[in-house]
Computed example of a mutant assay.
Amino acid sequence: MFVLTELEGPGGGPPRTIAFANAQVQPLDFASLRDARLDRPITIPLNWRNGTLVETTVEGTEPGQVVNAAATLESPFTSCAIGLVKGGWLPSAFAVTQQNTTMLIDRNIVTQIVGRFKDGQRRYEQRDFLDLFADQPIRINPLLFVMEGNRRSAPTPAEAEGQMQEVAAKLRAALPKAEITVSPEHLKGALGLIEDSRVSLMSKHHLLRHLAPLLASPVARADVEARWNDIVVAADLHGVPRQSLVVLAALSAVAVPNGKSPAKRLLKFRNGYTEADAYNALADIRAIELFIAMLSYFPDEAIQLCTADKNLALLWAGIQASNFARVGTGFTYDMTPVDDLFPGDTGAAWKNVLEGKG
């Protein structure tokens, strides 16, 4: 339940209060995340839709009415954990306001949880939205932790099983009230995903190693077209679909001047780019791909991808994915990247690449 109280009522009178439940918190956009200082107490606009009024001191309203509300949240909390949801992002605690929400957490959030909590109690004085999970029966899916492994390379079945046992024990010790979705069936599913993605991951790995020497340094304006074409040719050479997120990220790395695209930071291009660098970048992109798959296959379930990686979150918010649909054994979705990923005419050029014209 949410409770909102005015700082001051109409005409300087007593502040009015409303309390409502079952409201949908509207996701925030790319720009709000880009500008947010998540390591500081956060101030963000919030909008709620279709809530049920529970209590009210506002004249002309009564419990049971449907309510929409808007407020600016000036919070004492930081937001190290970013909740990625359909349509954008929210501080992690706001991304699980729907009942039975599943939190798909990546490796850095596991580290945050284990570091912040013991037996459901906070270890630190600094307050973060993640602290609101301390005594809550939240549902946590550590699939991404298991699939990534701890050696900066794809785990073997034995390693994946060990990772699942390790993460389950750590999370249960940190948050004993949480439901941790691990079982032999979950392990089987993780191993299946690792195996099914092996060939695709290797092709993308070759692509990133191919591109790294070309994109490690910022691309001069005069070279943008040449590097853009290099990416498209390399994607075709290595059998990586042009509509894939890794190709989009590489093209954005070229399109945004001075190496300032969050996609470039996510790809981790640098001099001396290693196999481990490529694997880590692809693990981040795979997290978004799996999240998209879950939104497509389970449209009626509340799911968030929880991460502490702002660049990963910016890529998700920036592609503005929508229209998720299951088609046979696969799925489809649309992307409408923001100008921060493809400024000027590069947005149209990216669409041409998708259509095979680039």
Score class of each variant (00 low, 15 high):
residue 267 L to Q: 02
residue 222 A to F: 14
residue 39 D to F: 11
residue 69 A to E: 10
residue 160 A to K: 00
residue 182 V to F: 02
residue 175 L to P: 07
residue 46 L to W: 00
residue 127 R to C: 02
residue 179 E to T: 07
residue 193 L to A: 06
residue 115 G to K: 07
residue 112 Q to P: 00
residue 93 A to G: 06
residue 91 P to Q: 00
residue 223 D to S: 14
residue 308 A to Y: 03
residue 330 G to P: 06
residue 132 L to T: 06
residue 261 S to L: 04
residue 273 Y to N: 03
residue 111 T to N: 11
residue 347 G to T: 05
residue 337 P to G: 03
residue 346 T to M: 13
residue 186 H to S: 04
residue 45 P to H: 06
residue 6 E to W: 09
residue 122 R to K: 15
residue 224 V to F: 13
residue 234 A to Y: 02
residue 130 L to N: 05
residue 47 N to K: 15
residue 194 I to D: 07
residue 174 A to C: 02
residue 42 I to S: 05
residue 171 L to T: 06
residue 298 F to A: 12
residue 177 K to D: 13
residue 222 A to V: 13
residue 245 L to R: 08
residue 48 W to A: 13
residue 300 D to A: 15
residue 274 T to H: 07
residue 150 N to D: 12
residue 219 V to N: 05
residue 60 G to A: 06
residue 187 L to S: 07
residue 208 L to V: 09
residue 93 A to L: 06
residue 34 R to G: 02
residue 162 G to D: 07
residue 286 R to G: 10
residue 147 M to H: 07
residue 64 G to A: 04
residue 168 A to S: 07
residue 102 T to L: 07
residue 200 S to P: 04
residue 290 L to P: 05
residue 198 R to L: 02
residue 205 H to D: 04
residue 94 F to A: 01
residue 242 R to H: 15
residue 339 D to Y: 10
residue 42 I to Q: 12
residue 170 K to Y: 02
residue 32 S to I: 09
residue 165 Q to S: 13
residue 294 M to Y: 13
residue 120 G to H: 05
residue 147 M to Q: 03
residue 174 A to M: 09
residue 4 L to P: 02
residue 229 N to A: 14
residue 334 D to H: 15
residue 258 N to I: 05
residue 275 E to Y: 14
residue 256 V to Y: 09
residue 267 L to Y: 14
